[in-house]
């Protein structure tokens, strides 16, 4: 197994090459997946747990990967599903962050944290959409991952960015 331009090609010596392909994916995608999870839960430990679960699935399912989508899209899809699985654990935790950000501009927090807090105020789908958009995932791929139309994703990205811009204007004032 080797990865070239997001395409996984399989070789006969599978177990060693699977390990190599996984090592490569793990190095390339850990930060991206972690940030996506942070965008969803806005909690370091929790995001790390979801990211780990994502890569465990990647490892387990890599031999069955059929190249029907680019490998990055496949990983993001697993990550999104793992994020949404958190709905079953507790929705209170995420809401707590939401309430905090809704109270108005946060003092003594840098802009990075403020951005992540603003994202935490969005609903589940919007959190995933904007996280992937900021991660440079193409809107067509986001639409494919979430099972939405591309035009819907485009409209929602626009609305989310408008909301974020307004919040940042208020924060900077």
């Amino acid at each position: 197994m080797t990865i070239q331009n997001g395409i996984l090609t399989k070789s006969p010596n599978s177990s060693i090459s699977q390990q190599q392909a996984f090592d490569e994916l793990y190095a390339d995608y850990w930060d991206k997946v972690f940030r996506l999870c942070m965008g969803y839960v806005n909690d370091d430990d929790w995001a790390k747990d979801i990211a780990q679960d994502t890569f465990i699935t990647v490892w387990q399912q890599l031999p069955n990967f059929r190249n029907e989508a680019a490998i990055g899209t496949w990983i993001f899809r697993i990550a999104c599903n793992n994020c949404l699985r958190q709905l079953e654990r507790s929705s209170k935790f995420v809401r707590k962050e939401v309430d905090k950000a809704d109270e108005g501009p946060v003092v003594n927090e840098d802009e990075v944290n403020f951005l992540y807090q603003c994202i935490a105020t969005l609903n589940e789908t919007d959190r995933l959409i904007i996280s992937m958009e900021l991660e440079d995932v193409k809107q067509a791929e986001i639409a494919g991952i979430l099972g939405m139309s591309e035009s819907n994703v485009r409209v929602r990205v626009h609305r989310i960015k408008e909301k974020l811009t307004e919040k940042f204007k208020a924060y900077e004032r």
Binding site: F22, W30, R35, D44, I56, W59, V112, L115, L164, F168
Partner: peptide, 21 residues
């Protein structure tokens, strides 16, 4: 700006692959 801020978020170090598996 959003993209730059998004990417400057410190990520947790990736756990050792062996530990992950």
């Amino acid at each position: 700006k959003f993209q730059q801020l998004w990417r400057s978020r410190k990520t947790a170090p990736a756990p050792d692959i062996k530990a992950l598996l």
